[in-house]
């Protein structure tokens, strides 16, 4: 196989892997939108908050240390332990469930029957609050996240792909990040688990009932408040997974919340109400943006057009999503909404 073809395949594979990372964030949005019609603006910040909490617990950081020290005159920063990653993840999950409970109790409960835009605005407020609260609790410094996930170049894959080229060609093999492969496996497990949960458990069926029709679900005795806590807890779990994957890649820092920007075109393309749609949308966006960048930055394109174009990924993802919307306004897998007027 020619090196050009192998390069193209490498870009495609990496694009698909990047797409999985976007889909991990998009999943949280879908879960909440599907069950309550709320576009949760705070999903990116939830991923950041989960990752900060995880690192804080792992490294034994004293929460609100700055505040405590300023008020009491003490100088405490760490408890002095290093918690095993598994335990820290479980405790972080507990914190995210607690957060879901508080969100329902303090925000959503008071906004039942309000317009979706009101609920959306509430999540904007929640995002700002949570970002500041996270900073206050765990500080805004960059933190190293290591939960033992494999990372870096897969030498096995590099060696195996090297054999696809002519030995004389001097091809150095394809690059795949082991962390991206791990993320793909985790995302697949997550989607399977969520699908099984919603199809085969009582709580899952209740969730689908609420998603289909709030009023009808309430009339048969399903507790809307319980469903909301449950769904925000699951979204917290998804945020934790996304936070771990992205945090392992870039470190845990305040800009991690901006990964939500990468999830928006995925949602537009895959549909706001479909779990498989988030995955497929992520794959299309990831592969599409990487291939487009590869194409427009190539010497061939430059020679043909005379243009120097780069950094296309951010806008191209949205253009691609908009193109799909022209033909399927509800996204590839979203529910078609027909309203009588």
């Amino acid at each position: 196989m020619s090196i050009e073809a192998l390069n193209l395949i490498e870009v495609l594979i990496n694009g698909l892997m990047a797409g999985v990372m976007y889909a991990l964030v998009a999943l949280g949005f879908v879960l909440i939108f599907k069950s309550s019609g709320i576009f949760n603006y705070a999903q990116g910040v939830m991923a950041l908050f989960a990752a900060m909490t995880l690192v804080g617990l792992q490294t034994g950081q004293v929460p609100f240390a700055h505040l405590l020290n300023a008020i009491t005159g003490m100088h405490v920063t760490h408890f002095g332990w290093n918690m095993p990653s598994g335990l820290a993840i479980l405790l972080t999950l507990g914190v995210m469930v607690g957060l879901a409970f508080l969100v329902e109790r303090l925000v959503l409960k008071h906004l039942v029957n309000q317009e979706p835009i009101i609920l959306f605005m509430a999540t904007i407020g929640l995002a700002f609050f949570l970002e500041g609260f996270g900073d206050l609790m765990w500080t805004a410094e960059i933190k190293q996240l290591d939960v033992g996930l494999p990372g870096g170049l897969s030498e096995w894959f590099e060696g195996a792909s090297m054999a696809l080229a002519d030995p004389e060609a001097g091809y150095w093999g394809m690059y795949v990040d082991k962390l991206d492969v791990t993320a793909a496996v985790v995302a697949a497990l997550l989607v399977i688990s969520l699908t099984l949960f919603s199809q085969y458990t009582r709580a899952g069926r209740a969730l689908r009932a609420v998603a289909d029709d709030h009023q009808a679900a309430l009339s048969v005795g399903i507790s809307l408040r319980f469903i909301w806590v449950m769904v925000w807890s699951i979204a917290g779990l998804v945020a934790l997974v996304a936070g771990i994957m992205w945090g392992s890649k870039t470190g845990v820092q305040t800009s991690l919340s901006l990964i939500a920007l990468k999830a928006l075109p995925v949602l537009m393309l895959g549909g706001f109400t479909s779990i498989p749609g988030a995955i497929v949308g992520g794959l299309i966006i990831g592969a599409g943006e990487k291939l487009f960048e590869y194409f427009v930055t190539s010497d061939a394109f430059h020679g043909l057009t005379g243009f120097n174009i780069d950094a296309t990924e951010n806008w191209f993802a949205y253009v691609l999503a908009l193109l799909f919307l022209v033909f399927r306004p509800q996204g590839l897998f979203g529910d078609r909404i027909i309203e009588r007027v």
Partner: peptide, 13 residues
């Protein structure tokens, strides 16, 4: 592009 959390294309290049 800002914020720079995704740089796969650049490093593949």
């Amino acid at each position: 592009d800002h914020p720079g959390l995704e740089q796969k294309s650049q490093w593949l290049e």
